[in-house]
Design a protein around this nucleic acid. Sequence first.
DNA 1: GGACGTCACTAGAACGTTCTAGAGCCCGAG
DNA 2: CTCGGGCTCTAGAACGTTCTAGTGACGTCC
Lengths: 349, 349
Amino acid sequence: MPRTPGTPEGKRPTLADVAARAGVSVALVSIVMRGAKGAGAATRERVLEAAREIGYRPDARARLLRSNRSRLLGVQFGLQQPFHTDLVEGLYAAAEPVGYQIALSAVAPSRGERHAVEALLGDRCEALILLGPQAPAARLAELAAQLPVVSVARRLRPAVPGVDVIRTDDDEGARRAVDHLVALGHRDIVHIDGGRAPGAADRRRGYRTAMNRHGLADRARVLPGGLTEEDGAAAARTLLGDDPRPTAVVAFNDRCATGVLDAFLRARVPVPDEISVVGFDDSHLARLAHIDLTTVGQDIRRLADLAVGRAVARLEGEPTPDGESSGKETVIAPHLVTRSTTAPPRNTP
Amino acid sequence: MPRTPGTPEGKRPTLADVAARAGVSVALVSIVMRGAKGAGAATRERVLEAAREIGYRPDARARLLRSNRSRLLGVQFGLQQPFHTDLVEGLYAAAEPVGYQIALSAVAPSRGERHAVEALLGDRCEALILLGPQAPAARLAELAAQLPVVSVARRLRPAVPGVDVIRTDDDEGARRAVDHLVALGHRDIVHIDGGRAPGAADRRRGYRTAMNRHGLADRARVLPGGLTEEDGAAAARTLLGDDPRPTAVVAFNDRCATGVLDAFLRARVPVPDEISVVGFDDSHLARLAHIDLTTVGQDIRRLADLAVGRAVARLEGEPTPDGESSGKETVIAPHLVTRSTTAPPRNTP
DNA sequence: GGACGTCACTAGAACGTTCTAGAGCCCGAG
DNA sequence: CTCGGGCTCTAGAACGTTCTAGTGACGTCC
């Protein structure tokens, strides 16, 4: 087995090993490895060479232990949620340029939020970025007392002190979906909601507001849904039984919309000819050529950038302007992505 | 802001703080916190009480730094791959009872495997569990020289010294799919493959073997596919153009199969009446009521258990039996999950 | 020619744990 | 009574880093 020669078997090389080999002090090696100033060019090269030779790799933990900064952002996300995984990718990208690392902790059926957060805290993360957290406000407040907490995609009403919120304007998103459909000529527009999921209440409200605004209050109808394909399909089956069927559906999210699409397809109800469908999230799913779903896009890249930005701002000074730290909410405007699942209703008056 | 009183603002409590409060030595607190023996019942209670009062939480990093064990298993996975996320959940579950933690590092378009692994190594993981790694064998060998490496779902031919492999018998899986279809009466069975994806070659081979075995060698046909819905849909569209259409399709995985299903649905080709479809993985997707896909199930729970088991075995002794450590391969048998996308062909002779 | 800067480098103390020795105590066996 | 052995507990040294406070050596400025 290829093992670097000169290194005691099984023990990974440390600063001291590099220092010995390069004939300098440990402190100087530390300086070189960090790229800090205070080392001559020639020595620097010599140290780097020595490090390369024995395969030195800095020990992140020891490093963090000493410098009381871990430069670690803890991210809690749902393993099965496409929107979350997209977001995680954005977070990685956003954290690197500002010199932070991401520590991931997944929430899954067998692993609750509590567990996930405990792991992150044990890892000495400096701040927490929680994607769509379900924890009660009190718990979030408790966490915020210990370290900066950013909630992404979960609105907090009333605001929780110390918890920043980054979210898409769900309300506005649902309104845009309705506006789009109305502009196409639809009047019987139904909403399949997301139940108690984060953002669901806002989207419901946005839908109602828009319907009212267009004088369609009496036609507004909200069907209980959820965030999986299954929920969407179930709701769609309900719609299939209706006699004057609605001509358009605004679904809670893309997964839900996909379920709707599928149910219609199976029932031989052509989309968008007989019924239009709008999703929410603009996830990978929606973009697949064969689905090509009209949807409300959340600016994932921006959400991620802002989440990291807020956390970092809290960490690096930002001298808690008023009072203590009130918990700032940043709302991003969504945008409608028009694809092929929406069209004017068949019998436009 | 609620802050634990008695603690210096902004600094998290340490063993020393607990010790001071409980009036004992630091070492004793350490003993109590670890649940090690060597502390009296009364003192133990008193220490725990003190810890609770000031909100003490052990510092994982310092802990690991000292005891040269990190008890950390580094897991590399693809953010967008349902099969991987399912597996990750299983890994969490498998690691906990044996006293190990999981450190996650995601691979995404913007974040290559190299990057992901570097992060894990920096975190001082004791072993690496790589889900469907694409890295060249040489790279894996290099890693294996430093620490135990387990490759899940990627076969290594020839075996890489020091790298254990845990995988499903892809070959057998594809054979079972074909057997099932043949038993139903199908003869024109096409395979939509996974290109260069891990496992694809084996599934292709299994398909061919089974076709031969049933005397259908001349009807065997492999269409280039891939691992996304899009790939499946594209291949399905090709099939739609055929005049004597095949009566059954074995897709590389569930996502691919879903794409196939969708394309057929849109073309008004009823499944399974006119054509049967089999997937691979038995992912969440396949189980959705409205998809209800016949598929080849991989025993995810078992794969996860074994992966953790192999890593731990390497770590805890297992005195490298023969020679050095040859790299052990464990192959799990897949099972066919019959759902509603397969049926006898319409015109059974 | 002394005071002062700057530059390259170093010694040694942190950081928050765990671990190794060993100290003090009480109890029962001889 | 003494000895050994078990308990409970403690002091202090690790672990691999970074940071603070230097030490010399060499210029530069009046």
